[in-house]
């Protein structure tokens, strides 16, 4: 039985999703089952490897975006009674590019080495975080952006919706449609439940934004700048409505508070503190 479920989120870019699927198939098939969730793609743009298709009217029109998209996939796995079969979930957006080599085993080994890590994010050579990490190093952060996360099931079980989780609430808060600060919310929930979030340079990623910048029409999504504007506007509203926070800095300090407290409980892990 494979320990890892890799879930690829796709919207109307079958060639891109197929390439990513085949990359995992060629390099990591022994370690992971691979699923593709179609986030409201049109029928002609479904990946040939797709597993689930969110095809109700609203999803076809607006997509699910990453919070609802991964929630949907996870809820399908639960429904199919497969959720407990996996120890780890690799949540991957379709515009993420990896090195052409096996990576899942490396990520699993890292999770085994760091039993209090709930979320592990590969690092990008274009991220400033790399200056805090040496080559092949993993450290714990209070802030990490969701691009592709390797998530421990036990962590998920501690923070996920309890009753009949759906695409709106399985892991991410689906009310936060475009996901601004949805990642930091999960990090906070993690530290509050004794689970750290780590970034590792043992696996490297690159987010290929050219799809969003040049193929937004094909993806049936908002143009890049318009999307960023909406991400911020809707995200700020969500932050205010849910937490009464008026600034991204508030939720950041909130996260830092739980992060510092985590190391008070686990001083032996301080060597992984940034």
């Amino acid at each position: 039985m494979k320990k890892v479920a890799t879930i690829i989120l796709n919207r109307n870019l079958p060639d891109v999703a197929n390439r990513l699927y085949e990359k995992f198939q060629n390099n990591d098939a022994k370690e992971t089952d691979i699923f593709i969730v179609e986030s409201g793609s049109s029928k002609k743009n479904l990946s040939k490897h797709y597993t689930w298709w969110a095809n109700w009217e609203d999803s076809l029109e607006h997509g699910l975006r990453y919070p609802r998209g991964f929630n949907y996939a996870l809820s399908k796995l639960l429904e199919e009674k497969k959720f407990k079969s996996y120890d780890y979930y690799f949540l991957v957006c379709n515009d993420v590019e990896f090195e052409q080599k096996p990576i899942i085993k490396t990520l699993v080994n890292e999770m085994i080495k760091h039993p209090r890590v709930g979320i592990l994010s590969p690092c990008s050579p274009l991220w400033g975080e790399k200056i805090l990490l040496s080559k092949n190093e993993t450290k714990y952060f209070w802030y990490a952006q969701f691009i592709s996360w390797f998530v421990r099931r036990e962590y998920m079980e501690d923070v996920m919706a309890l009753e009949k989780p759906t695409y709106m609430d399985f892991l991410f808060d689906g009310e936060n449609f475009r996901g601004y600060e949805a990642d930091i919310e999960l990090i906070i929930k993690g530290y509050a439940n004794d689970w750290a979030t780590a970034i590792t340079t043992k696996v490297l990623i690159n987010e290929n934004e050219t799809y969003l910048k040049t193929r937004a029409d094909l993806m049936k999504t908002d143009p890049y700048d318009e999307n960023l504007r909406k991400v911020l506007k809707e995200g700020k509203k969500w932050l205010r409505t849910k937490y009464g926070f008026n600034s991204r800095w508030t939720i950041n300090l909130y996260s830092k508070f739980f992060y510092d407290q985590f190391f008070e409980y686990y001083p032996e892990l301080s060597k992984y503190k940034v």
Binding site: L126, W127, G128, E129, L132, W142, Q145, N252
Partner: peptide, 21 residues
Amino acid sequence: GSFNSPFRIVNELPAEIQIPK
């Protein structure tokens, strides 16, 4: 700079990490 930007700036440490550090 990243202090004023709610989104990531290439090759810069997010201000969310840099400032508390």
